[in-house]
Simulated scan of single mutants.
Amino acid sequence: MFEIRVICTPDDADRVGTALAAAFATSPARQYPTRDGKRIRLYFTADHRSIGTNPTHTESE
């Protein structure tokens, strides 16, 4: 298990969360504003998906 931190604009938060959830088994994002107040920090607890639950994984990887 590991943690992913992403800094992005609030408008991109849903797209980032969707993309990470497609690649990893993730928890719901914890959101905090950046110091400048213009962006947000997203924290996800994540884990690798097994071969059976990762539709983009191929045996050759």
Rank of each mutant, 00 (worst) to 15 (best):
A25S: 08
I40E: 04
V6N: 01
P55K: 11
S60P: 02
E59I: 15
R5G: 00
Q31C: 06
A29L: 02
Y43M: 14
S27T: 04
T58S: 14
H57P: 01
A25L: 04
S60A: 14
K38I: 07
D12W: 04
N54A: 14
P10H: 05
T9P: 04
I40G: 03
F24L: 09
A22K: 10
I4S: 07
R30Q: 07
F2A: 08
A22C: 05
R15Y: 05
C8T: 12
V6D: 01
A13C: 07
P33R: 13
I51V: 02
I4M: 10
I4N: 02
S27P: 01
D11L: 12
P28T: 03
M1P: 11
D12E: 13
N54I: 00
R15W: 06
A19D: 08
L20V: 04
F24T: 03
H57M: 12
F44H: 10
V6L: 05
H48Y: 11
R35G: 13
A19H: 09
D36L: 06
V16D: 00
F24E: 05
Y43P: 01
R35W: 01
Y43S: 14
D47N: 10
G52M: 06
T9L: 11
T34I: 08
T56M: 13
R39K: 10
D47C: 08
Y32A: 12
T45S: 14
Y43R: 15
S50I: 01
P10F: 03
H57L: 15
A29C: 01
A25M: 03
I51L: 06
